[in-house]
Design a binder for these strands. Structure first.
Length: 562
RNA sequence: GCCCCGAUGGUGAAAUGGAUAUCACAUCAGUCUUCGGAACUGACGGUCCAGGUUCGAUUCCUGGUCGGGGCACCA
């Protein structure tokens, strides 16, 4: 629908001699302003040097003609907005479409399908996209920072898939380097040769980390261990390393499963060191990198990025070199059209350096890579510090929310669905990149603007539909569309835009509004046994389809009851 | 010191340069629960400061104040 209007506006602009002007077609903030509004007249007036109101009048006339029966009226308002109100039948048609399409509602169609959002999905349709997120470090427990990336990554993946792309998910875990040495040192000190739980390894890491700071001889031992791990020749050490890594990865997979995500590729540091070293050394010969105090660095001054070390003076690769190696490894395993990497926003700076260096050794690889930063999860109750060992682990966090949800839900499965929904909503509601303030009391209250609010609205609709299946209801159709209908019809545009902008929060905002509108409808209108029962049931089904599809794209579970 | 990001009612957030700045929590006042109240209706209250660009600025530009992050051998 949006696309139809957009085309009609373009036609009119071309006729007026202002083709190519950028304009918007969107849902106006005020419902009273209609279903769609465009600022095209004002944009074109600037270019043509004409009066915006006059232009708007002629534009409105053109739209009334070309759109015909689809619109009920087109009005010029304010400084030159053109507001379009759809005809009752057009609204009903959109609702019927949502109803009929079920789980296909809002999905990008193939070209032949003639989706109204065709041009908007072009960025993804049929494209191969690889998306990296979560990136936990073996030998450390996943903390709630990883939780944010994991949740955002899965939602973005689903949105892009929905827009017609072929998506592969990958994660890049740390399994080598100083942090690992600290954990292994801790295990050795405790005489543990067969670590069995992630908690055990986490405690060993904390001990090693503390010793590294306070005890010079321990520091020397840990540094030596780090070198030995890179060398990989000490069989006993490598045996411990392998066992520890396996335990960590098992735990990661458990948590990923809980969060409804999985990875097509699980990469590790140790997979990329060789390629990273080779490519950086090669770049050194070509003058991309330079030597400085025995280390290989990338001098980013000219490009306005930080200068960083890629290979240390001990000849070990840093994370930066490994990232370069990873870019090549990904391309080798699954050639893609675009590569998206999601990390915390504290890594934005070093990512700029990595991409700048990559641009010098492999321009195409660098160009198709996008870095998406997620915000910090900040606790209102105090700070976390992994050094002090008081990090909140993802596993503990999820468990505590599930416990809270269990107070209202005897059924363990539903308690889990509600808890996961609450967590994901809290994270996804915000624009990616901005920090997330987490107030335990508020987030766990499961009321108001929250995941459970959306789930509850859906449960209510499902209940009506379940009853209604047996009943024979009235068949009158109301003359006026209900507000919820005018909201449902925008769903395909919202998901298309959320994918395009890699912004799940746009969909969250929409669904929150949708749930509110449904709850208002529910409070005001009786469905079963009313004269309009048949029609209202269609609306209920259209709402349920929209909510289910939207929540599913976000990775938020849709419980049957609550 | 240099670089990046942010600042919106009491609190947490929303708003491709658009219309009377949206939502939730909290507070206050109602609905008294027929298809499930984890709900609905209403009230209160806000764009950090000073300039600039524009028909029009929370949004863009300049300067300032405050906060967060990053800045070579950690990831």
């Amino acid at each position: 629908m949006e696309e139809r209007i957009r085309k009609a506006v373009e036609e009119a602009l071309t006729k007026a001699g202002a083709s190519g002007v950028a304009f918007t077609v969107e849902r106006p903030g005020e419902v009273a302003h209609g279903d769609y509004a465009t600022n095209a007249a004002m944009a074109a007036a600037k270019m043509l040097g004409r009066n915006p109101r006059e232009l708007a009048d002629s534009l409105a006339e053109h739209l009334t003609e070309t759109l015909g029966a689809v619109v009920s009226h087109v009005a010029v308002a304010g400084p030159g907005f053109v507001n379009i109100t759809l005809a009752r039948e057009a609204v009903a048609l959109a609702v019927a479409e949502a109803d009929a399409q079920g789980s296909e509602w809002g999905k990008a169609k193939t070209a032949e399908g003639g989706s109204p959002d065709a041009s908007q999905s072009e960025a993804f349709r049929g494209k191969r996209i690889i998306i990296e997120y979560s990136n936990p470090n073996a030998f450390k427990e996943m903390h709630i920072g990883h939780l944010v990336g994991t949740v955002v990554g899965e939602a973005v993946s689903r949105l892009i898939e929905n827009a017609g792309a072929v998506v592969k998910r990958d994660t890049f875990g740390g399994d080598i380097g100083p942090n690992v040495a600290k954990a292994l040192w801790g295990l050795q000190k405790k005489g543990i040769s067969e670590p069995t739980t992630a908690g055990e390894i986490g405690a060993a890491y904390t001990e090693g980390s503390n010793a590294y700071e306070s005890d010079p001889s321990a520091k020397a031992e840990i540094d030596a261990l780090n070198q030995a791990i890179y060398a990989g020749t000490d069989a006993e050490l490598m045996g411990l390393w392998r066992k520890g890594r396996d335990v960590s990865v098992e735990e990661f997979r458990r948590i990923w499963g809980l969060l409804g995500t999985h990875f097509d590729f699980e990469f590790f540091d140790s997979d990329t060191t060789e390629a990273g070293l080779r490519i950086v050394r090669d770049g050194l010969k070509k003058g991309v990198f330079e030597m400085s105090d025995g280390a290989v660095i990338y001098n980013g001054e000219a490009k306005g990025v930080h200068t960083m070390v890629f290979i240390t003076s001990h000849d070990t690769p840093t994370y930066e070199a490994k990232d370069i190696g990873l870019a090549f490894l990904k391309e080798e395993r699954w050639p893609s059209d675009r590569s998206i990497v999601i990390t915390g926003n504290e890594q934005t700076g070093r990512f700029k350096t990595v991409l700048a260096a990559l641009a010098d050794v492999a321009p195409l690889l660098s160009k198709k890579t996008v870095h998406l930063a997620t915000g910090f999860l900040k606790l209102s109750s105090g700070k976390m510090s992994s050094r002090e060992g008081n990090v909140i682990t993802t596993a503990d966090f999820i468990t505590s929310v599930i416990e809270r949800a269990s107070e209202k839900n005897a059924d363990a499965l539903i308690a889990e669905q509600v808890a996961i929904g609450a967590i994901k909503f809290m994270i996804l509601r915000q624009a990616p990149g901005s920090d997330i303030m987490f107030d335990e009391e508020k987030s766990l209250s499961l009321e108001g603007d929250s995941g459970p609010y959306l789930q509850y609205a859906l449960v209510r609709a499902k209940k009506i539909l379940a009853y209604g299946a047996n009943g024979e209801g009235g068949s009158e159709e109301p003359a006026e569309a209900y507000p919820i209908e005018r909201l449902i019809l925008h769903y395909p545009e919202v998901v298309a835009r959320a994918a395009r902008e890699l912004a799940p929060n746009l969909l969250v905002n929409y669904l929150t509004e949708l749930a509110g509108e449904w709850n208002s409808f529910y409070a005001k209108e009786q469905v079963l046994g009313s004269p309009e029962e048949a029609y209202k049931q269609r609306v209920a089904r259209a709402f349920a389809d929209t909510m289910i599809n939207g929540l599913t794209l976000l990775g938020i579970p849709t419980p049957e009851r609550m």
